[in-house]
């Protein structure tokens, strides 16, 4: 089985988010970048499905050269090779178009992404890649298993899940439950240095949204502390002041 895993380079989850250039740009000063946590789940599942000679895992990332440490980490975790599409990932449409055009003639059986990136939170790439390639997509899955070329996928739906049968190829956005993220071991880190990382030019998608500014949420007003032996007061405030009950 040939699996393509789409990996996004995102700020570490502990990052305090600030902006520069008149709130038009994310301030990357002092920020650690990591593999998007949901993409790590996708990668772990791809490795489970292919290890022991059962297939290969290719990483694809749309980014400039500064994303290469993240790509190398994905190789260290166990992917076989990687492709970097050399461009700033301006929006999901651009990223998906480029991933789809790269994948079009490569006969991947399965394309996995994370359910969403933790920076832009678009949750768009899996379904857009599916549409560009005219193959089924499952935006948020909790499980994917194979019996030959037929997969069983658990798709998250409102208030439950659907258990779906689908044959390859298809695209799926992985959420918690699909696999446990893996950490690279020393052998992985050593071998990652020599694994193939191809850089290809990006294509114009002919369309793009534009972020015109960012904003940080306003601080909440000071917390009202209610004595632990007067919980009735909290109920009263939630009713008369906050008006939520």
């Amino acid at each position: 089985m040939k699996v393509l895993v789409c990996v996004s380079n995102v700020p570490d989850t502990t990052t305090k988010v600030t902006f520069t250039n008149d709130n038009m740009e994310f301030n990357t000063a002092g920020v650690q970048f990591i593999i998007n946590p949901y993409d790590e789940i996708a990668l772990a599942r791809a490795i489970e499905l292919t290890e022991g000679g059962k297939g290969t895992v290719t990483i694809v990332n749309v980014g400039k050269a500064d994303t290469e440490p993240t790509i190398r980490k994905a190789l260290a975790i166990g992917a076989d090779d990687a492709v970097r599409i050399d461009a700033t990932p301006s929006d999901a449409y651009f990223v998906s178009y480029n991933i789809a055009e790269y994948a079009r003639d490569k006969n991947f059986d399965l394309i996995l992404t994370g359910r969403e990136s933790i920076d832009y939170n678009g949750a768009q790439v899996a379904a857009m890649v599916g549409e560009f390639l005219d193959i089924p997509s499952f935006s948020i899955i909790k499980k994917v298993e194979f019996d030959g070329s037929i997969a069983t996928v658990d798709r998250e739906v409102e208030g439950g899940k659907e258990i779906i049968n689908v044959s390859t190829p298809f695209v799926a956005g992985c959420a918690e439950g699909v696999a446990a993220a893996r950490i690279p071991n020393m052998r992985g880190i050593m071998s990652a240095r020599t694994k193939r990382l191809e850089v290809i030019a990006a294509l114009e998608s002919g369309q793009s949204t534009r972020i015109i500014k960012y904003e940080v949420p306003p601080q909440r007003s000071t917390v009202k502390i209610i004595p632990a032996d007067e919980v009735g007061k909290l109920v009263e405030l939630l009713h008369s002041e906050a008006k939520v009950i």
Binding site: P11, T15, K16, V17, F19, F26, I118, D119, Y120, N121, T209, R210, I211, I212, K213, Y214, E215, V216, P217
Partner: peptide, 12 residues
């Protein structure tokens, strides 16, 4: 909402 709730973005 962006950055998983840590910020907002205005998208044109």
């Amino acid at each position: 909402t962006t950055f998983s709730g840590k910020a907002f973005a205005y998208v044109e």
